[in-house]
Each structure stands twice: as structure tokens, then as C-alpha cells.
Design a protein around this nucleic acid. Structure first.
Length: 1009
RNA sequence: GGGCGCGUAGCUCAGUUGGUUAGAGCGCUUGCUUGACAUGCAAGAGGUCACAGAUUCGAGUUCUGUCGUGCCCA
């Protein structure tokens, strides 16, 4: 709370106390209601709206640094816009994440209580998942608050709450009524352990050792001269029981020509050393024409004629068909087709529907009644053994010659870690043709722009396929599909449960399935605002202003929000999508809880502070690169750090390599491990942010101390000294840079501009220089105080979005010593920096001449310091120096004399053309101003002849090389003729400057002998 | 296989439309108990800008190819 009594500045700690600031200011902001958005002023036209919906974190687990980055960036945007006077709505909430959450809870249930979901039943399991959700939602909310996020917590939503459920139901009803929902067959990724379909992004691929078996199917009634059997090969022999065709290419000769032409093209382009293998391939292809082509042509003709093959073991026949999926250049050239259990084969079926599909699997992964009795009830591995044995015995397979080893890329379920079975199932689909097109149009027309632009391509490519969206999931956790079905009757979709009882009396049953999580997420930008009701919130804040997210859900989420917004509200959900980088660990892997490399933002916040984390994140958020963050454990005993490795990141306990004491990690489960203190995981990258915050804290302490007797008064322009004007000029420039950078989502540029300004200009120069002015009361001190108060005020406001707690803490302290500030008119600071006006760059203050002149002063100061350090002259020894320079430079430097004394303990005893010292001096030339400046530093007894000679010789060598290069350039007629005149003139000036310096160095060397 | 990135100092990264002798933080070396700050101050060492070509008076920056690496899609 803002204190009513004045703080004793002497008691302020010498290091920024982030714990205290965070504990104090977040509750204050919430109590004041700064984060609560009010639609009224927007609807009245008094304020412009700015709204953002949070990408809802899923309630499966706690947030990691990736989320911290996502939310920090949103908060920076929101806080900045709030300061600019917009009515800001940042809508928070969480996602129910269907399968992920159900899987986590089920796994836990099995581990801890040895219960399956069937033991609890649908209602029981859902109850348990709600409990889990409550726990994690609370944790996530807490994390976001610790991070300082300025969300409108009074409006927090959950994708499965009543309001979102209503939007989901309304949407499904509309889709159903419009005929955009249908039920169809589709090959899904079946998890036989969880007995549900999983989406493509819940599948991971892993290579496993397997085999490639060949066997043959007899031809039914071959004509004379025709093959009597067809050879096919497969990695999954057991699926032959579900075969419905064998395919041969419709134009094997043409296909071979095509492949050969491609190989030749590749050969022509290949470097010599890569040619032999390509030549070998071409030769093999030629050989294949002789050995295989005649037979393939025969088979192709037989396929056209409608020849049947006998399917061994299954006592049925299947057709030989012509289809391009068969590759004449590979294997036998023929391929078996199992549409119900292979994605490619299913596509063949779609082109040749007459072959039909046969599903041979039950939901539990065992063979069903479509296969001969002896195989029924076998698991896939069991069936594989039996099929091979039986084929061998029947003479269709020779285990000696017809099998080879092969690595197989096998899909696994991310949820159960068991192999996926492709499985043909009835599914609910949403027709995507029109909807996808509308979402594509939104981006191609520019109504929605994606930043950086390149991500627009993956968005358009994906939507361009217009694949229908399978929306059903065989789960219990989610929005239940509002459809009631009855055999032989038309299904009904009900908007209201009151009608359900009626239809159920008529024998209709409620569909068991729930909707894909992304179905509810797609409605998020407006379901959270009360749609389908036309609420004030929706009227004021929809469409939102920007969506901030990471690239992996552009297709799953962003595209679907766009098409749903257009479909339901006839308006895009946001005009801009900003795609930010991802956080990777030191090995370049994305962070995840399951991998063990996830970092809890609270660990970082505890150690370095929320401001440090946020500033560090902004500093790292560049446009093109992901953020690589080497991660380390911090020993709770000795605070030593231990680098995280792929080995130790999954261990429940680690022994500290510094103090040999053990500590526990997030994997600790056994009591003996849990009893140990936990070692947090952080990254030393955030030291940058912490150090910066501390620097700013101390600069503020210094400023506050020197403002104790500050009295606001208007400062005339002629009262400003050169360093005042310089600082105000730089501040105006930086203000402009920060605003522009944030407008363009260049967070790193904004952070770097502020870091450099605050540290290297405000602290290192302005504060150092004003020390002398504060030492003596008078008008000069008053001017310095006014400039200091104004500059600090502006700097705090610029930094507030990135470092909210620190800036608020200082803002409140500044209000105590300088409640009124401003150079021309005294303005009272706002009660919180959250609602202080965002700085506007004062173009009139920008003075490039002052900035360049000041740079000369800095360069001379640097030269003196360099000589002192180079010769090891103790800092308490006072030095004299002279500056040989033109009159303009002389006039500039003259008034800075006190600052040389103060900042380098050196006296400028002579300035201007041909200045030098009578005492023995070391020289240092300064380049870059297109006028020679040479500094002569009197070095008294400290000269080390040999070291000085070496230093000068090195400088001479550099200058000789440089002048040589410049002469060469200027001697090049083409350069002089083609380069712009100002470039040529610049090079000439540089040469003149360097030659003067070279002469000075040579003279100094000669003097040393 | 297709698409999109990335490869710059020991590490993590900046480097606008081609035009100073390529920068920062960390780490390293040297010196500082200097009245805001050792989470600091001053200075220093450290780079064939992955490689090979091309365009240009001029390339870290543009183009082509190669290698390495990562992500997405199939």
C-alpha cells in the first residue's frame, strides 16, 4: 500500500528486494481494480478498447518457462496499452485439454488406488478430473499472478465451464443444422491401451527393429502364360487377414521411365563423388525392366480384366486392381491393400471403393470375428506368429529366404506409450471446405496478419488441404456431443437438455462421445465474452486486438478460431497474430514436464525476481531464433549450481558436486527422497535481468537521496547544461525506439534500448556527472534535480511493462520526494504507475549535434582512462592531459573539465590545436569524428618504456594497415566512379584523419628512441 | 520426400534498406574497501561472420549450391 508517512531513504536496502515488492504491489493493483475491464466507457466512445485473450494453459500441469514467455509478452503489451489510455481487457482462463487431462488422472488413479476408470464410472471419473482441475487451475493462476500478469481475474473462464459449454452447444447445433456435421468412417490413431482415438499431435514416432516378410497369393484361374501367383511384402503380416485387394501400377513402364528420368536429372546435377550410387540405381532400374516389367504388364492387364486372387488362410478371394500406390520400382512391384488398418491403403480404397474394407480388430487391439475362428481373440503379436507359421506350412512363405531385417518407424501414443493401431472407426466430422476457405481468405486479404509473415505459409498450406475435421473423441472428459441416436431413425441434435427426456423415452440414446478440445478452444475469443448472448463485453471488446502464441498451434488453434469467428459472428477474432519464439533447453530441446527439462517460473522468480525473469524474457525474445537456455539445479544447501544434463534431469535425487549433500528434484516420489530439501531449477541467463533491476534500484536510491530538497519549478531551455540536453535528447530518442519496437513486437529491441540507455547513459554518465552539481546548492543543482526527476519518471514508465514491481516500488518512493515533476509544467504523478501515461517522444528534445558532441567528450574520457589502466597507474594518482584537436572540439570540451577530474581524476591542462604537454606523455588518438583528436596524457614516473613502445607499435601497425586499405580503395577507379559521392568523401576524410594520427604515433615512437 | 528457420567471440545472442577497423551479456585476465550499486567500477584478451561459388567499386548482410542443426507437414 502507498505509505502515508515518508520513507526514511537511508533505510532502503542496497539490493532490490523483489520478494517485498511483489508481495506489496500485486494485491494493491488488484484492490484498485486496474486490471478489471469495463465495457461502458468503450461503448460510450470515451475510451478505445484493447483486448487479448490468453492462450488458455491446459490444466494437465503447472506452467513452465514457455508459458512465462507467452504471458510476459502479453502482459507487456497490455500494460503498455493501459498506460496509453486504452480500456484493456486481458481475458484469462484455462483449457480442459480432453485426453491429456483424462490420461493424467487415470494414470494417477491406477498408480495410487489401483483403479481403472471403469471402476469409477463416467460420473465418478469426471468428479476426480474436476478435483484435479481445481487444484491445477489454482496453481496456474498463482503462477501468473506471481509473474505480475495484469489479467482481468473477475472474468476468468474455463473451456468446460457453463458459459463456454453453452457456446459449444450452440455452435454444434448450428453446424448440425447447417448440414456441416456428418458421421463417417475414418482411419484413426487408435490407442489400444486407453481405448480411444488420439490425434496426430498426440503421437510420437520411434524406430523399432522389425522384419520385412514376403509371401504370395495364388491367382484364380490364370490363363496360359500368365503368372500363377502374385508376390507381396509387408512389415505387418497379420494384417493380411484384412486384405481386400492387391494392387499393381496402372502404367508400370511409364512409372519406370519417370523414375529413371528423375535419377538422370539428379545424376547430372550431382558432384562427381556422389555419382556412383546413382549410376548403380539407374543400372538396377534397367535390370528391373528386364526382370520385372513384362510380368507387371501382364498383371496390369489381368487387373483390368478383373482377375481374382485367393487370400490364403482366410478362405476368400480378393481382386487384383490397378492403382498408383503400387511402386513398380520397389520389391515385387505389387502391394497388398488393407484399407481398415493402413492409411495409404485407405486412400487406395477411396479411389477403388468396390474393394470394400474389413476391420479385423476390436477396440482392445485383439482380432475380431471377421477373421477365421482360430485367430479370433489373439493380440496382434500373437496373430503375427500364427499367420507366418500357417503361411509357411501352407507353402506361401519360405522363412529361409522370404524375410529380411528392417527398421520400422512405428507410431506410439504419447499418452500410454504403447504402439498405435491405425483403426477404421465411425467419427463425427465437420465439413471444412467452406469454413477453411473463409479462414484462408481472412489471411490472404490481410484482415488477419501473421507476424512474422512467414508463418502465414504454414497456415495457408494446412487449410488449403481442406481436410474435414474429426471432432469426436472416445473420452469422458469434455463437452458431450449433443446428439441423440436411434437405429433406423434420423439422429437429432438438441440445443436444450429438457427435450432430451422426450427423445430418450422414444428410444433415442445420447451419443457417448465428447468433442475435441480444440472445438471449444476455437470459440475462446468470444465464448469468454458471453457469446451467444450479445453482451456489452462482446460489443466492446470483440474482435480482440492481437493473439500472442507459439507456432506449434497455428493450425490446430489459430486457424480454427478464425474460421469459427467468421462462421458464427461474421467477423475475424483478431487482426493480428504474433508468433513468438519457443524456449529450448541447453540441448536445443523444447521444454516439457515429461522430459524433465521444464523450469517452473516460480523457481526463477524466487531466486531472481519476477522483474528479472520478465526483463530477461523480453531481452531474449528476438524475431528469428528460439531461445536456448542452458538450465541448472541450485543446491539448496550451498547455493552452488549443477548443470542439468540428459542424465540427471530425470533423477529423483542429486548429490551436489560442490558440497556433497543430496537434494530432491521434481521426480522425487519415495519418502526418503521427499524428505530432502528440493533443489530448484533455474538458469543463470536471468542474472542479466536481476543485475539490471538492481542497477536501476540503486540508481533510483541515489536519485531519491538527491531529490530530498527538490522543489518543482519550470526550467528554461537556457538553464540546461550540455549533459542535461544530451540526456533529454537521448531519452526522447529511446522513448521513440521503445514505442516503435513494441508496436512491431520487437521485444528484444525494446529491452536492449532501455538496458543500454539506463545503464550506460543514465547511470554511467548522467548520474556520475550530476554528483558534482548536487554537491553545491544553487540554481545549477535545481536544474539537475528537475532533469533527474523528469528523466527517472520517464524511464520508470518506459520500463514498467517489463519490470512492473520494481517500477511501482520506485514510483511510489518518487512520489514522496517529488510528487510534482516535469520540466516545463509541474505534473502530479498518478497513484500507481500502472495508470501513468505512456511516455511520448519529445521530438524537439532530440538534438543530434549535442549527441555527437557529447560522444567526443566520452571518447576523450575513454582515452585518458585507457592510458591510465594500460600503464597501471593507480586511480588515486591525479594526472594531467592535453587534447590536440580543432577549435570546435576545444570549445566543447572546455566546459567539461570538472567531469574529467571527477570521472578520471585527470585535469585537462591544455586544449585546442597543437596542444601538448611539457612533461613526458603517452598519446592516444581518437578516431571516428572525421577530425583528428589526439590525447596526450602526462604519465609522470609511471611510464614503462618497453610497454609503451609495444602499445604504440601495435597502434602504428593498425593504422598502417587501415590507411593502406583506404588508399587502395581510393586508388580504385571503379570505386571512385561508382560509389556515391558521400561514401567517397567519407573515405577520404577517414584517410586524412588516420594519416594525422599515424604521424603522431610515429613521432611519439621516435621520441622514445 | 516437401516446407520453414538457424549456423557470427569459450557460452547465449544482436547486427534495419549492402558502405567506419563486426557488437552486447556471461565467462576469462588485470586493477579498484572511489559516499547509489562488488547483483558494482575501470580496462584488456578473444572472431577466416559454417564451407564453396556468383552478383557488386564494395558482401556478416543479396543469389546459388554444399555441409551441419532444429521445427512443421507427409
Amino acid at each position: 500500500m502507498p505509505t502515508t508517512s515518508k520513507t526514511d531513504l537511508a533505510t532502503l536496502p542496497s539490493a532490490y528486494d523483489h520478494h517485498a515488492a511483489q508481495a506489496k504491489w500485486y494485491p494493491f493493483w488488484e484492490e484498485k481494480g486496474y486490471f478489471h475491464a469495463d465495457p461502458a466507457p468503450v461503448l460510450k466512445g470515451d475510451k478505445k478498447p484493447y483486448s487479448v485473450v490468453i492462450p488458455p494453459p491446459n490444466v494437465t500441469g503447472a506452467l513452465h518457462l514457455g508459458h512465462a514467455l507467452n504471458n510476459t509478452l502479453q502482459d507487456i503489451l497490455c500494460r503498455r496499452k493501459r498506460m496509453e489510455g486504452y480500456e484493456v481487457l486481458w481475458m484469462p482462463g484455462t483449457d480442459h485439454a480432453g485426453i491429456a487431462t483424462q490420461a493424467v488422472v487415470e494414470r494417477r488413479l491406477l498408480q495410487e488406488e489401483k483403479l481403472s476408470r471403469h471402476d469409477l464410472g463416467r460420473e465418478g471419473l469426471i468428479d476426480r478430473i474436476w478435483q484435479w482441475k481445481e487444484q491445477y487451475e489454482k496453481r496456474i493462476t498463482g503462477q501468473l499472478k506471481q509473474l505480475g500478469c495484469s489479467c482481468d481475474w473477475q472474468r476468468q473462464r474455463f473451456t468446460l465451464d457453463d458459459q463456454c459449454a453453452r457456446a459449444v452447444r450452440e455452435t454444434f447445433f448450428k453446424l448440425f443444422s447447417d448440414g456441416k456435421v456428418y458421421r463417417g468412417k475414418r482411419l484413426v490413431n487408435w490407442d489400444t491401451f486407453l481405448q480411444t482415438a488420439v490425434s496426430d499431435d498426440e503421437v510420437f514416432h520411434e524406430e523399432v527393429k522389425g522384419h520385412f516378410w514376403s509371401f504370395h497369393y495364388p491367382v484364380v484361374d490364370p490363363k496360359a502364360g500368365e503368372p500363377t501367383h502374385v508376390t507381396i511384402a509387408t512389415t505387418r503380416p497379420e494384417t493380411m487377414l484384412g486384405d481386400t485387394a492387391v494392387a499393381v501400377h496402372p502404367d508400370p513402364a511409364g512409372q519406370l521411365d519417370k523414375v529413371e528420368a528423375e535419377l538422370k536429372e539428379k545424376l547430372a546435377a550431382a558432384p562427381a563423388k556422389e555419382r556412383p550410387p546413382i549410376v548403380a540405381q539407374i543400372e538396377a532400374l534397367a535390370e528391373r525392366r528386364k526382370t520385372h516389367l513384362p510380368k507387371l504388364l501382364q498383371l496390369r492387364d489381368m487387373a483390368k480384366r478383373g482377375v481374382q486372387l485367393t487370400l490364403p488362410l482366410a478362405e476368400r478371394t480378393l481382386p487384383l486392381i490397378a492403382d498408383e500406390w503400387a511402386k513398380p520400382e520397389l520389391g515385387s512391384g505389387c502391394v497388398k491393400i488393407t484399407p481398415a488398418h493402413d492409411a495409404n491403403d485407405y486412400e487406395v480404397y477411396q479411389r477403388n471403393e468396390s474393394i470394400g474394407t474389413i476391420n479385423i480388430m476390436q477396440p482392445d487391439g485383439k482380432l475380431n470375428d471377421s477373421v477365421p475362428e482360430k485367430y479370433r481373440g489373439l493380440t496382434m503379436p500373437q496373430a503375427r506368429k500364427a499367420v507366418i507359421a500357417d503361411l509357411t506350412e501352407a507353402g506361401f512363405h519360405d522363412p529361409e529366404s522370404d524375410v529380411e531385417d528392417r527398421l520400422i518407424d512405428l507410431a506410439h501414443s504419447d499418452r500410454s506409450k504403447t504402439p498405435i493401431e491405425p483403426y477404421l472407426a465411425d467419427q463425427w466430422f465437420v465439413k471444412m471446405d467452406v469454413l477453411a476457405q473463409s479462414a484462408m481468405d481472412a489471411v490472404t486479404s490481410g484482415d488477419v496478419s501473421i507476424v512474422p509473415e512467414r508463418y502465414g505459409k504454414s497456415y495457408l498450406d494446412w487449410l488449403g488441404e481442406k481436410r474435414d475435421w474429426p471432432v469426436g473423441r472416445q473420452l469422458w472428459w469434455g463437452h458431450r456431443i449433443p446428439v441423440w441416436r436411434k437405429d433406423g431413425a434420423k439422429s437429432v441434435c438438441l440445443l436444450d437438455d429438457s427435450e432430451a427426456q422426450k427423445v430418450e423415452k422414444d428410444g433415442f440414446t445420447h451419443d457417448e462421445e465428447v468433442l475435441d478440445t480444440w472445438f471449444s478452444s476455437a470459440l475462446w475469443p468470444f465464448s469468454t465474452m458471453g457469446w451467444p448472448d450479445q453482451t456489452d463485453l462482446l460489443k466492446a471488446f470483440y474482435p480482440t486486438s492481437v493473439l500472442v502464441t507459439s507456432r506449434d498451434i497455428i493450425t490446430l488453434w489459430v486457424a480454427r478460431m478464425v474460421l469459427m469467428g467468421k462462421y458464427l459472428l461474421d467477423e475475424i477474432p483478431f487482426p493480428e497474430v504474433y508468433i513468438h519464439p519457443k524456449i529450448l533447453d541447453g540441448f536445443g530441446e523444447t521444454m516439457s514436464k515429461s522430459k524433465g527439462n521444464g523450469v517452473d517460473p516460480l523457481d526463477v522468480i524466487d531466486q531472481f525476481g519476477a522483474d528479472a525473469l520478465r526483463f530477461g524474457i523480453a531481452y531474449l525474445t528476438t524475431e528469428t531464433q528460439d531461445v536456448r537456455l542452458p538450465v541448472e539445479f541450485v543446491c539448496p544447501h550451498c547455493q552452488g549450481t549443477i548443470n542439468q544434463t540428459k542424465q540427471n534431469r530425470v533423477q529423483p535425487r542429486i548429490v551436489c558436486s560442490h558440497c556433497d549433500k543430496p537434494f530432491s528434484t521434481q521426480w522425487a516420489e519415495k519418502d526418503e527422497d521427499l524428505a530432502l530439501p528440493r533443489g530448484p531449477v533455474t538458469s543463470e541467463r536471468f542474472e542479466l535481468g536481476r543485475n539490471f533491476c538492481n542497477k536501476l534500484w540503486n540508481a533510483s536510491r541515489f536519485a531519491l537521496g538527491n531529490l530530498q530538497d527538490y522543489k518543482p519549478r519550470a526550467i528554461g531551455p537556457d538553464e540546461l547544461r550540455i549533459e542535461d540536453r544530451w540526456l533529454l535528447s537521448r531519452l526522447a530518442t529511446v522513448t521513440g525506439e521503445v514505442s516503435t519496437s513494441l508496436d512491431e513486437y520487437r521485444f528484444a529491441d525494446a529491452a536492449r534500448a532501455l538496458y543500454d540507455f539506463a545503464w550506460n547513459e543514465f547511470c554511467s554518465f548522467y548520474l556520475e556527472m550530476t554528483k558534482a552539481r548536487f554537491a553545491q546548492a544553487g540554481p545549477d543543482k535545481q536544474v539537475a534535480q528537475a532533469v533527474l526527476a523528469d528523466a527517472l519518471d520517464t524511464l520508470l514508465r518506459l520500463l514498467h511493462p517489463m519490470a512492473p514491481f520494481l517500477t511501482e516500488e520506485v514510483w511510489q518512493l518518487l512520489a514522496e520526494v517529488a510528487p510534482l515533476r516535469g520540466l516545463t509544467a509541474a505534473v502530479e504523478g498518478t497513484e500507481s504507475i500502472c495508470v501513468a501515461p505512456w511516455p511520448v517522444s519529445d521530438a524537439a528534445a532530440i538534438d543530434p549535434t549535442i549527441e555527437e558532441q557529447f560522444a567526443k567528450f566520452q571518447a576523450v574520457l575513454g582515452a585518458v582512462r585507457e592510458v591510465r589502466q594500460g600503464l597501471g597507474i593507480p586511480s588515486k594518482e591525479s594526472l594531467n592531459f592535453a587534447v590536440d584537436c580543432d577549435e570546435e572540439t576545444e570549445n566543447l570540451i572546455k566546459p567539461m573539465q570538472p567531469y574529467f577530474t571527477q570521472m578520471a581524476k585527470a585535469n585537462a591542462v591544455e586544449l585546442g590545436p597543437d596542444s601538448a604537454l611539457s612533461e613526458f606523455s603517452s598519446i592516444k588518438s581518437i578516431s571516428g569524428f572525421n577530425t583528428p583528436i589526439t590525447v596526450h596524457v602526462g604519465v609522470k614516473a609511471f611510464i614503462k618504456i618497453e610497454a609503451e613502445k609495444a602499445r604504440l607499435a601495435k597502434e602504428q601497425a593498425n593504422l598502417t594497415k587501415f590507411t593502406g586499405a583506404l588508399r587502395g580503395k581510393l586508388g580504385n577507379e571503379k570505386f571512385v566512379a561508382n560509389a556515391p559521392a558521400e561514401v567517397v568523401e567519407g573515405e577520404k576524410a577517414k584517410l586524412a584523419e588516420a594519416e594525422t594520427q599515424l604521424a603522431a604515433v610515429a613521432a611519439a615512437l621516435a621520441k622514445l628512441g
